[in-house]
């Protein structure tokens, strides 16, 4: 609850700033040179995305957003922002990925801990440059005053909200691409119209930052309903958001033949009665990715429910098991009929 209120406040502040109302937080300016240049800025502050970085208060032109069903990353709190240069806007294309103008950026900060104890761990930026998207990871210092470029990634020990002590991995630049890639090009993953709330889309359109709210667009369920909502849409949304960036044609795991995108409706492609190809011990002794009615005999759930390297899926960005995600997918597979 506290988090959604904070997001709402941020959203108001930012919309206000964009619309030109006086705003205490809207004075800082983003460096278009840093976003669009050819270099890899060494410090996150070089971009000027934040008016107050430690509190994650965005600068003018930087708008927070949230996803209906988010990617799970060891329970990290995520603060997501979009930067649009003056005079530009997003364009909606059905329920898919919003089209971003050159010069825009997507910023995502990963944090652990509540309230005063909150620590910013890393901020990942996606920069839309003339030659394409560039993904860069920045690691926060312990003083929380600056984040510096971590091209080669890194590790640190922390305790997840679930109370598990883990070695948390900050991805290296190539690992950013291994998720953010289709047909060899870097692309954003999260900001698809179907995974953004109608309120947010409407607000952006009203502020002139989005060309139009897509009509009749599909909408992923709100993950806050995961415990009680219908299993099928929740599970398919979860797999779309957490797995399909690799498991789709042209994605990093295309050779598996598994396609977990929301829009895929071929049962075999999403894993039902599909035999493994290169799963190795990740198969866990099971014959099928998904065996209807049998979550405990389904490779997909076995790998979700593991934190062991070589078995665990996703391969990146996870050192512990997402109990909520496992529960939803378990419920869905249990309900599937032969």
């Amino acid at each position: 609850m506290r988090r959604s209120v904070a997001l709402l406040l941020l959203a108001c502040a930012s919309f206000g700033a964009v619309l030109g109302h006086a705003s205490a937080t809207g004075v800082a300016a983003v460096s278009d040179a840093a976003v669009q240049g050819e270099s890899f800025p060494r410090k996150l502050s070089d971009f000027g995305f934040f008016a107050e970085a430690a509190r994650q208060v965005p600068a003018a032109g930087v708008t927070p957003y949230a996803l209906n069903t988010p990617l799970w990353s060891d329970g990290a709190e995520k603060l997501r922002f979009i930067y649009l240069p003056q005079g530009t806007q997003l364009a909606a294309e059905g329920d898919g990925l919003l089209r971003f103008p050159v010069g825009s950026a997507i910023i995502k900060t990963f944090a652990f801990g509540e309230g005063e104890a909150r620590r910013l761990i890393e901020t990942r930026v996606l920069l839309h440059r003339a030659e394409g998207w560039v993904a860069l990871p920045y690691r926060w210092n312990s003083e929380q005053t600056e984040a510096t470029l971590a091209l080669a990634g890194g590790r640190l020990d922390l305790v997840t909200p679930a109370g598990e002590a883990i070695s948390y991995a900050i991805p290296n630049k190539n690992q950013c691409k291994s998720c953010h890639s289709k047909d060899g090009e870097v692309i954003p993953i999260g900001p698809k119209a179907r995974n953004l709330s109608q309120e947010w889309l409407g607000g952006m359109a009203a502020a002139g930052l989005l060309d139009a709210v897509p009509v009749d667009a599909d909408s992923l369920p709100d993950w806050a309903t995961h415990a009680t909502g219908p299993a099928q849409p929740l599970a398919r949304a979860y797999l779309d958001v957490n797995c399909a960036h690799c498991h789709q044609p042209g994605g990093g795991a295309s050779n598996s033949g598994l396609d977990l995108r929301w829009e895929q409706d071929d049962p075999h492609a999403i894993g039902i009665m599909k035999r493994p190809v290169a799963a190795g011990r990740g198969a866990g002794g099971h014959d099928f990715s998904i065996l209807p009615g049998q979550p405990d005999k389904s490779i997909l759930l076995y790998r979700m429910d593991s934190a062991e390297p070589g078995v665990a899926m996703p391969e990146l960005g996870k050192a512990s098991v997402d109990r909520d995600g496992v529960a939803v997918v378990r419920r869905w597979i249990s309900e599937l009929k032969d």
Partner: peptide
């Protein structure tokens, strides 16, 4: 002592 990733070296 590998803690993450699906392989030792990935070439793309």
């Amino acid at each position: 002592g590998q803690m993450g990733a699906g392989e030792g070296l990935l070439v793309t």
